[in-house]
């Protein structure tokens, strides 16, 4: 299967030197344009083949008697999603989840970036904070859920606490690494241009660490989105996590699968938005 497969190319080789030139440059360009179009259609077909096949398999499987009760077909799932969209129910859950994820993310972001920068600037702060960080970091965010419920009860605060626990260390450690690994020559250049230590921090260290900080925030955002879902499954009465767990309990696989699609879509959208934001901010 592997042999020779790397010889297949999705785009035709450009400008084949050995082929004899035929016709005017213009007609040649048109022909190459047509070939390009064909290649592009071919590439599209290749990209679409597997997803379409999977959806078809899903539709067929949903009709077979043994599976049907736990696997509604694509059409049924879409219909349910549409109904929940119209009734506004879906919106309530999505909004609740987003709100919590955002709140936890912002809290973790502020604490994590501030602590990471402080640790990068001072040996003492670094060594003192390193102890608690290394002690608490391995405890996975999930393990905090029962304690969060004991401390804050069922609801918003518990969920936000779990999200903070699930993303703060990623943000902190990425910030710290980025702020510690500033190119020595950049610092030297700023020094020879007359910058003070404080100016080095604001004009060199922070902007230079920005891509690393943004990377940490983006990974943490995925963590926050996961954290909100699992916390909602246990510690709330609304949100997407709660929605699919309740649907499972009341035997509504269409809502469960619909919810999963929405979860994936929102995760994708968040990632896309963040990347767009990152490109605007960093230029690197």
């Amino acid at each position: 299967m592997m042999a020779g497969s790397d010889d297949i190319r999705l785009r035709p080789r450009r400008g084949g030197a050995l082929r004899p030139a035929a016709g005017s440059p213009q007609s040649r360009r048109r022909r190459r344009g047509a070939a390009d179009l064909r290649a592009r259609m071919q590439a599209l077909a290749i990209r679409l083949a597997l997803p379409l096949l999977l959806i078809a398999l899903w539709a067929v499987a949903a009709r077979s008697p043994g599976v049907a009760p736990v696997l509604p077909g694509p059409a049924a799932v879409l219909a349910t999603l549409w109904q929940m969209t119209i009734s506004g129910e879906l919106f309530v859950h999505v909004a609740a989840s987003l709100q919590r994820a955002f709140a936890g993310f912002v809290v973790a972001g502020i604490i994590g970036v501030a602590a990471g920068l402080a640790m990068s600037q001072s040996r003492l702060v670094n060594d003192i904070l390193a102890g608690p960080v290394e002690l608490l970091r391995p405890i996975s965010s999930i393990a905090w859920i029962p304690l969060a419920i004991l401390w804050f009860g069922i609801g918003f605060n518990s969920v936000v606490f779990v999200i903070v626990a699930s993303c703060i260390f990623i943000i902190l450690l990425n910030t710290l690494a980025a702020a510690q690994n500033v190119d020595r020559d950049l610092v030297n250049a700023a020094l020879t241009l007359g910058a003070t230590p404080r100016q080095i921090f604001t004009k060199v260290t922070v902007p230079s660490a920005m891509p690393g900080i943004m990377l940490g925030l983006r990974i943490a955002m995925t963590g926050a989105w996961g954290g909100v879902l699992i916390a909602e499954m246990i510690a709330t009465r609304e949100g997407l996590g709660y929605m699919i767990v309740r649907a499972q309990a009341s035997y509504r696989p269409d809502i469960v699968i619909g919810g999963m699609i929405v979860i994936g879509f929102v995760g994708y959208a968040l990632n896309w938005l963040f990347l767009a934001l990152q490109r605007r901010i960093t230029h690197v």
Partner: peptide, 28 residues
């Protein structure tokens, strides 16, 4: 990784499932 053709075919599926986080599969 070795086959650009298979990669192109699988990429959309992989990319879609990647965003459906594992926790979301628990109820199903």
């Amino acid at each position: 990784g070795r086959s650009p053709l298979l990669f192109a075919a699988f990429e959309p599926v992989v990319e879609s499932f990647r965003f459906v986080i594992p926790f979301a599969w628990i109820p199903l």
